[in-house]
Design a protein around this nucleic acid. Structure first.
Lengths: 258, 258
DNA sequence: TCCTGAACCAATTTGCAAGTGGTTCAGTGA
DNA sequence: TCACTGAACCACTTGCAAATTGGTTCAGGA
């Protein structure tokens, strides 16, 4: 009679031993299990059998393992990525645009309310230079400076820190080609005009108009990004982008259909 | 004839040499200056005189130095504090509330649009527990969990990361007393009711209602915080202002000008 | 067929050394 | 007396190699 269960004798034996061990360590503060090699020797089985048992326990959520770190009792810690690299990796460009659509209109509104005259002067100068720059890199730089100056003018250091965080992710090299394509052509002129409108509203202290103008601008940017992403290049630029579906899934539970 | 200027001959000589050096390196891409010991030997003066000259240049903003790194030409890079400690230090509680007022209504709206059934179940359970908890710590925990669950349900990992960042700053111990006072008394019951409204709107997929309810809630929280902050406690909670006069003299003799 | 032992790969942590600015101190010379 | 020098030490940063650990593959045995 064939055994459909892949876990066999040694693994089952190890499972029992390990469960008992976990029950013991649960009461203690000990969270770390011995290395696999040591543990296998202690129990008296091979490492492969031990690993099969550990896989079961990990699937049950009673332990978690990480290469180079070790095996630990309990559920895997929540690891909300706080460093930019990881955030960049697992953040979809559209997610970034959604965040910008929430943050930057608010920044524009606050800037209209609280910008100093110096801020407004700087914004006006930036608007001129943005329009006059010809190459893509120049546009990119002026555009970035413009948005950041608005964020500074909003006068909230925490919001500014958030803006910088989002901006750094946005400038990740992964999406550079994407952005260049999204801002090429006649869109650029519309962007310049939209920038003018935002700055004019800020200069005239019209908070609501500034917020609205910024939202309109970002929605067009988002639309351009969307269009570029859905029409793949002749040469593939990256596997990560086309691979991901529309929205990013923080967990696997998130809705699939229905 | 006495020289009132503390910087004397060698330092001034070094200043001239260094300014010339800076003018040269300005054209090049070189940003890093040789180590102080090397530079001092090159110029032919002692390290102390060199450091005095470097202090002048640093004050002028032409160079910047950092222990363990080196001395560099140009202005110090924009160290936007990305770590939480520094952000916490220089962020005012009202700034945090302003940010929450921008972020969390958006999160509630997105949650109403994208929450899974599992999310909604969790929210409903949390609402019950929040109401039933009696002590201040318990309320704090459930409240925090509730807001974070909404942030998770919004389904945008970047927004979630931002929420966590703000939340960690908010939970800084500096404001713990403040928050306890702000949520004491009859306000707590209003908060519970407001939470119910937010969750109900999310459960019924009414995005606009969820956003509005969350904003209303946070505006009340903000108002409570404001009220608490403007009515100082009988016992001072900040030890920083009344600084101990005795201890601090480890470095220099402080001039006690009588 | 399953397990073992061994070997190798990859990620992480740790320890150490070198290099740097920051500081103090005794000595030197005008 | 004053400013400077040289030396020594401290504190911070970086880079690298070794050790540790989980992840994987493979030949061999019961």
């Amino acid at each position: 009679m064939s055994n459909p269960n892949p876990s066999a004798d040694s693994s089952n034996f190890a499972l029992g031993r390990l469960r008992a061990l976990l029950d013991d360590t649960a009461s203690d503060g000990e969270q770390r299990l011995p290395p696999e090699r040591v543990l296998a020797a202690q129990i008296g089985i091979g490492r492969r059998a031990l690993r099969r048992a550990l896989e079961v326990l990990e699937a049950e959520g009673r332990i978690w393992r990480h290469q180079g770190k070790g095996t630990f009792v309990g559920s895997r810690p929540d690891h909300t990525p706080t460093n930019l690299e990881e955030l960049s990796k697992r953040t979809h460009p559209l997610e970034v645009m959604d965040v910008r659509l929430e943050i930057e209109p608010a920044l524009a509104r606050l800037a209209a309310m609280r910008a100093t005259n110096g801020d407004i002067e700087r914004l006006l100068r930036l608007a001129e230079k943005t329009a006059s720059s010809s190459d893509a890199d120049g546009r990119e730089l002026w555009d970035s400076a413009l948005h950041r100056t608005i964020a500074e003018a909003a006068g909230n250091s925490l919001l500014l820190a958030i803006f910088d965080m989002v901006d750094r992710i946005r400038q990740d090299t992964t999406w550079r080609l994407l952005r260049e394509r999204a801002r090429s052509g006649e869109r650029q002129q519309i962007y310049v005009e939209q920038h003018r409108r935002v700055i004019a509203a800020i200069a005239q202290r019209e908070a609501h108009a500034a917020e609205h103008a910024m939202r309109e601008h970002l929605e067009l940017v988002r639309e351009g990004l969307l269009k570029v992403m859905t029409t793949p290049l002749p040469d593939r630029m990256d596997g990560q982008i086309s691979e991901a579906p529309v929205t990013a899934n923080t967990k696997k539970e998130r809705r699939h259909g229905t």
